[in-house]
Computed example of a mutant assay.
Amino acid sequence: MRVRNVMVGALVLAAGAVASIGLGAGQAAAGAPFVQLDQGRVGMQLSHDETASLADGPVPAVVSMFVPLSRMGAGLQPDTTIYRDDSGGVHASLRQVMAEAADHPDGTVTIYVNLPGTKGGRVLDIYQRWNR
């Protein structure tokens, strides 16, 4: 029973976090939250405009106040300019990962909030995507 309550609470918290990220992207946010129960996370795919707006606003700094960089993961594009160490560790802020995607004409990000105890202790994952 306790585990179920924790899971439900974590999902509600994660959904709220993803929704607040989407609201931070502006009034016309097209990104809709989605749930991946099998992977223990909720996420949101942002459009290019939402990605750029979010990267330019206060949300990345506010999120970083509550989630340390050591609890964030980043899926970077192969042609990224962000530094990765020999073990694959990303050395960039949440804002830098978003801003790099926003600098590409079709760049977007997908943001995931992970349930506690999943994904190696990461709370937040962000994936970049662009073609050009």
Results as ranks from 00 to 15, higher is better:
residue 22 G to L: 11
residue 89 G to Q: 14
residue 84 R to G: 02
residue 96 Q to L: 07
residue 27 Q to S: 10
residue 68 P to G: 06
residue 124 L to Q: 02
residue 11 L to N: 06
residue 70 S to A: 15
residue 121 G to A: 09
residue 2 R to Y: 00
residue 54 L to H: 04
residue 107 G to S: 07
residue 130 W to L: 09
residue 58 P to T: 14
residue 118 T to R: 14
residue 76 L to E: 04
residue 18 V to N: 03
residue 47 S to P: 03
residue 10 A to K: 02
residue 110 T to P: 02
residue 23 L to T: 09
residue 39 Q to C: 07
residue 116 P to D: 05
residue 97 V to P: 00
residue 75 G to P: 04
residue 48 H to N: 11
residue 55 A to C: 06
residue 46 L to Q: 04
residue 28 A to G: 10
residue 118 T to W: 12
residue 3 V to H: 02
residue 87 S to N: 11
residue 41 R to K: 14
residue 66 F to R: 10
residue 80 T to G: 07
residue 108 T to D: 01
residue 36 Q to G: 12
residue 14 A to T: 05
residue 2 R to A: 02
residue 127 Y to C: 05
residue 56 D to G: 11
residue 38 D to H: 08
residue 96 Q to E: 15
residue 13 L to V: 11
residue 24 G to W: 02
residue 127 Y to S: 08
residue 32 A to D: 07
residue 19 A to W: 04
residue 93 S to I: 02
residue 42 V to Q: 00
residue 53 S to I: 03
residue 52 A to T: 06
residue 22 G to I: 02
residue 68 P to Q: 08
residue 74 A to K: 01
residue 41 R to I: 04
residue 7 M to P: 00
residue 110 T to Y: 08
residue 34 F to N: 09
residue 22 G to P: 07
residue 130 W to D: 05
residue 8 V to D: 10
residue 25 A to P: 06
residue 104 H to L: 05
residue 125 D to Q: 08
residue 3 V to G: 00
residue 84 R to Q: 15
residue 26 G to P: 06
residue 92 A to W: 05
residue 49 D to S: 14
residue 115 L to S: 03
residue 97 V to G: 02
residue 23 L to Q: 13
residue 82 I to S: 01
residue 106 D to I: 12
residue 23 L to Y: 12
residue 131 N to L: 13
residue 65 M to Q: 15
residue 34 F to E: 11
residue 123 V to I: 14
residue 117 G to T: 11
residue 90 V to D: 01
residue 52 A to V: 05
residue 130 W to S: 08
residue 84 R to E: 10
residue 77 Q to V: 14
residue 63 V to G: 00
residue 37 L to E: 13
residue 100 E to L: 08
residue 124 L to W: 06
residue 131 N to C: 04
residue 131 N to G: 12
residue 103 D to R: 13
residue 117 G to Y: 09
residue 6 V to A: 11
residue 119 K to L: 08
residue 14 A to Y: 00
residue 78 P to M: 05
residue 130 W to G: 04
residue 56 D to M: 12
residue 1 M to D: 07
residue 124 L to E: 03
residue 12 V to S: 13
residue 104 H to W: 08
residue 10 A to I: 02
residue 72 M to L: 11
residue 40 G to D: 10
residue 118 T to V: 14
residue 79 D to M: 05
residue 94 L to Y: 01
residue 26 G to C: 03
residue 39 Q to N: 14
